[in-house]
């Protein structure tokens, strides 16, 4: 679903014609035809993000972050059951590994998912270690921000590491 959602976001932001031009300008094995249920090479994702960045002048990392927000909204609409019993953003983030990913694997047993090792902090807050084979730290950052926004309680998000985009430590704290 990452590909279809990326294109949907791009269409809304820059219009169908630009998206068509971007796709036509790339040499993609898939030809730019994606479905939500298929798996496609990760390189195509970065090629599209890179091309969109060139086209719009927006930094690729920033694009990833915005995309995180976009995808989170799709989750809200498509899978409200995950949010129903969560009291706050920290609880939600803590449940990704043990709950959301479990459900994802039921549908897509071969999905190469990132890991979110979480630890509740005593003083209130959550530490979350992101690890992935793909350099999507910025995308993850966008998701975390959107999640915090969803529960409508201001939080402070700090990110350390993530230079290579594959590993970063997020600390999410309530703002008092």
């Amino acid at each position: 679903m990452v590909f279809t959602e990326l294109l949907a976001m791009a269409e809304q932001a820059v219009g169908e014609d630009v998206v068509d031009e971007v796709l036509d300008g790339l040499d993609l094995d898939s030809g730019g035809a994606y479905t939500a249920v298929g798996s496609y090479p990760c390189s195509e994702l970065f090629a599209i993000v890179g091309a969109l960045s060139d086209r719009t002048g927006i930094d690729a990392g920033e694009l990833q972050r915005q995309f995180g927000h976009w995808v989170f909204r799709t989750f809200e609409q498509g899978y409200p059951q995950f949010f129903a019993d969560k009291a706050g953003a920290l609880e939600m983030l803590e449940a990704i590994e043990g709950q959301v990913h479990v459900e994802v694997r039921k549908l897509y047993p071969d999905a190469e998912l990132p890991t979110f090792a979480t630890r509740m902090l005593e003083e209130g807050g959550l530490e979350m270690q992101y690890r992935s084979d793909r350099p999507l730290v910025a995308f993850c950052h966008g998701l975390v921000e959107a999640c915090v926004a969803h529960f409508d309680r201001p939080m402070q998000i700090t990110r350390t590491g993530g230079a290579d985009g594959r590993e970063a430590l997020f600390v999410i704290r309530e703002v008092r």
């Binding site: 679903m1 939500a36 249920v37 549908l107 897509y108």
Partner: peptide
């Protein structure tokens, strides 16, 4: 139609998993 097909596929895949 594509989105519907995707939705149906997920539904069936989940049923199959269970």
């Amino acid at each position: 139609a594509r989105q519907e097909a995707e939705r149906l596929l997920e539904e069936r895949a989940l049923a199959l998993f269970h």
